[in-house]
């Protein structure tokens, strides 16, 4: 591939008559405030800007991520490689093939979106045609027949995509949350800001909230009101976050988790409560414990005796043989 090195100034990008005639500056600005600017993408990944001449003779940028890196570095001048005598598509493919790191899911979303926005039509190539050329290189086979599905993901807000990027969400995970109401995502993100949660917990919570909204035909406002009535609100969490130096997420979010579970599995919650009370009533001895399937699907329970001596063992047997105890055990069995 033939090329030459050219020097470029940041200001050149801000003018419509610049060397690069960058009509897509608005989109690039969008990219500047994208997760890609958060420092997660290191400049070592793509360290030089590539340009090529389009069908009208204007020079265009091939690798926008590099632009971000260069802007971030505040360099006045930076070098570019101008690819000579190749089509836009050749340039893109060459650049992607020589790129030595796998792009994250969010980066792929931005990249494809950027390409669709800026090169389709202008380069006389359809979205489908373009995607067909690129999906193998970008490892997007799952979207092979439906590039529009990938495009839909770009509608997610930057805040959400930033979170996905920082937690290294897969495309499948992003696709999953993209189907949910953004209010739900923002609500869980607001919790995450105060008490960071893992990607799997994030997904679990947004899915459960979504299920609750469908289950009760609620709006998000109703859900938030309910949670506040039950003792959980993000303001409370703010207070916690201000007073504690280190967070212990399982404790700080326990009210939320409990209330969410109670709401989603109301019948099971009530049912387990009844069994729990019966078990408490029966096992006054700490040496006898009863465990059951809390999904209430498998009948029966397992009863464990802890004995450190013959006396312990005999005491347990005596308790189990007691008619009053047996009546209580039967009652537990009938409930499960």
């Amino acid at each position: 591939m033939e090329f030459k090195i050219v020097k470029l100034k940041i200001e050149d990008l801000n003018s419509d008559n610049s060397l690069f005639s960058c009509e897509s500056l608005r989109e690039l600005t969008t990219l500047n405030s994208s997760p890609l600017q958060t420092g997660k993408l290191e400049s070592s990944k793509i360290d030089i800007l590539w340009v090529y001449k389009d069908v009208n003779g204007y020079q265009r940028i091939v690798n926008p991520f590099c632009l971000n890196d260069n802007i971030r570095s505040n360099e006045e001048n930076f070098s570019c490689i101008e690819l000579l005598g190749y089509s836009f598509l050749d340039c893109l493919k060459f650049q992607l093939q020589t790129y030595d790191h796998e792009l994250t899911a969010v980066e792929k979303i931005y990249y494809i979106s950027w390409i669709f926005e800026n090169f389709v039509n202008k380069e006389k190539i359809s979205k489908e045609g373009l995607f067909k050329e690129l999906y193998h290189i970008l490892n997007l086979q799952a979207f092979n027949h439906r590039p529009e599905k990938l495009k839909k993901l770009t509608r997610l807000s930057k805040t959400i995509l930033s979170y996905c990027h920082s937690k290294k969400f897969s495309l499948k995970q992003i696709q999953l949350i993209s189907q949910l109401d953004e209010d739900i995502l923002n609500y869980v993100l607001s919790i995450n800001k105060l008490v960071p949660v893992s990607a799997s917990i994030f997904i679990q919570w947004v899915q459960t909230i979504n299920d609750c909204l469908v289950q009760y035909s609620w709006s998000m406002e109703t859900f938030v009101d309910y949670m506040e009535t039950e003792g959980f609100n993000t303001n409370k969490l703010t207070t916690i976050s201000e007073t504690k130096k280190e967070f212990t997420p399982p404790i700080d979010t326990s009210i939320f988790k409990d209330e969410l579970k109670k709401l989603r599995y109301k019948t099971l919650y009530d049912y387990n409560k009844v069994i729990e009370d019966k078990v408490k009533d029966f096992t006054s001895s700490k040496d006898i414990s009863i465990k059951w399937d809390e999904r209430c699907e498998t009948p029966g329970f397992s009863l464990t005796i802890t004995a450190k001596s013959k006396q312990d063992f005999n005491d347990c047997l005596k308790t189990l043989n007691d008619p009053v105890s047996q009546k209580k055990i039967y009652s537990i069995l009938e409930s499960i």
């Binding site: 289950q215 035909s217 599995y265 109301k266 019948t267 099971l268 049912y271 209430c296 699907e297």
Partner: peptide
């Protein structure tokens, strides 16, 4: 997920259900 995607107005897939030992999601036994 398929049901939610193919029938966005349907509510039936989000009721109180659990995964049974046969690998199927069904309403809770009670």
């Amino acid at each position: 997920q398929k049901m939610a995607l193919n029938f966005p107005k349907s509510y039936i897939h989000s009721q109180e259900m659990i995964l049974g030992p046969d690998g199927k999601i069904r309403y809770v036994k009670p």
